[in-house]
């Protein structure tokens, strides 16, 4: 019953966002497209790191595999998008095995550093190994787009984000979702309760890569280009992490909230802080969020909702 009530909120959110193009400018929609792609990446991070506690600092590694796979297939071989995008998703899932192997032996900070190393390695590989194939430091541009125009791209990115969001949100409410979060809380206790944590972690890594793969491939074709400095940029990585953390890690809804908030905030700040100093705001937001609302916006809204409900009942 609780799930049905909450699904109603998803429906309200979906309908509201579908009506948005009627009232906002195309410029705002283009900003929202970025927010929605960021939400997809943040959810991908969340299902792995927010749920299982294996903090990934190298998520752009997965996104990069997807982006480069579809970019190279379409650019060099003229492979149609309906084939190159699924191929990119599969390649990302295979690539996630590189992430998974260290997770069998390392935890915590060590795992995070290893994933960061993977990102750095891919960053340099894309620049120096076979630059004719990858485009080297400049990357590849002139890639085919899926659809043209702000409104269709808004609906496409929103639709993909919405379906992934509802799917993952339902999943974390199942026994499987609960089992994944036991790994974060106490992996040894999970094992002693009979949970096969290795299989569970593999599932989380694959699912995270699946989502990152879809997001990475679509994002590349939305931009029509891919370059190592864009995809493996540290501020891109921080955007993903901070969106998930300030929204509420482990909740799926939180990263969506965080992605919209962060994207809109940065755009709002653009006239006042036009340069990269805007990104300084990331650090400040993270500190404030951790200090005052360590469980993120998701928790704040939840508490507000409970208080409103209590007030309503009293009256």
């Amino acid at each position: 019953m609780g799930v049905l009530v909450s699904l109603r909120w998803w429906l309200v959110f979906g309908v509201g966002m579908c009506l948005l193009p009627l009232v906002v400018s195309t410029g705002t929609l283009r900003i929202l497209v970025f927010a929605q792609f960021l939400a997809i990446f943040a959810m991908s991070w969340d299902i792995l790191s927010g749920r299982t506690g294996y903090i990934s600092f190298g998520h752009p590694f997965l996104i990069g595999i997807a982006g480069y796979t579809t970019a190279m297939l379409t650019y060099h071989l003229g492979v149609p998008l309906y084939f190159s995008i699924p191929a990119a998703v599969v390649a990302t899932m295979i690539g996630s095995i590189f992430f998974f192997i260290p997770a069998l032996r390392t935890r915590g900070t060590y795992f995070a550093v290893v994933t960061l190393a993977f990102m750095e390695v891919l960053y340099h590989l894309m620049q120096v190994v076979q630059p004719k194939l990858t485009g080297g430091t400049r990357g590849l541009s002139g890639l085919p787009t899926i659809i043209l125009g702000a409104v269709p791209n808004y609906y496409l990115s929103f639709g993909v984000m919405f379906v992934i969001g509802v799917g993952l949100w339902l999943l974390i409410r199942t026994r499987l979702g609960t089992a994944l979060s036991t790994i974060r809380m106490d992996e040894d206790a999970a094992r002693s309760s009979g949970l096969n944590t290795t299989k569970l972690k593999l599932f989380a890594f694959m699912l995270s890569a699946f989502v990152a793969g879809i997001g990475g491939a679509l994002y590349t074709h939305y931009l029509g280009s891919i370059a190592p400095r864009g995809i493996f940029d540290i501020s891109f990585l921080f955007s993903i992490l901070i969106a998930a953390l300030i929204g509420g890690a482990g909740t799926i809804v939180g990263p969506i909230m965080g992605a919209y908030f962060l994207t809109l905030l940065l755009e709002f700040l653009r006239p006042y802080l036009p340069g990269p100093e805007r990104y300084l705001i990331y650090g400040a937001i993270t500190l404030l969020a951790y200090y005052y609302a360590p469980k993120g916006f998701h928790n704040i809204f939840g508490l507000l909702w409970q208080r409103l409900g209590a007030l309503g009942r009293r009256e």
């Binding site: 089992a179 979060s181 036991t182 809380m185 040894d188 206790a189 999970a190 002693s192 309760s193 009979g194």
Partner: peptide
């Protein structure tokens, strides 16, 4: 069945959720 020292619970889960984890198999 194994009941480790009492620190080895899932702290952010409710009592029933903790119990249900034990029923996974």
């Amino acid at each position: 069945g194994y009941a480790p020292e009492r620190g080895n619970l899932f702290p952010f889960m409710g009592v029933k959720e903790n119990l249900l984890v034990g029923a996974y198999r």
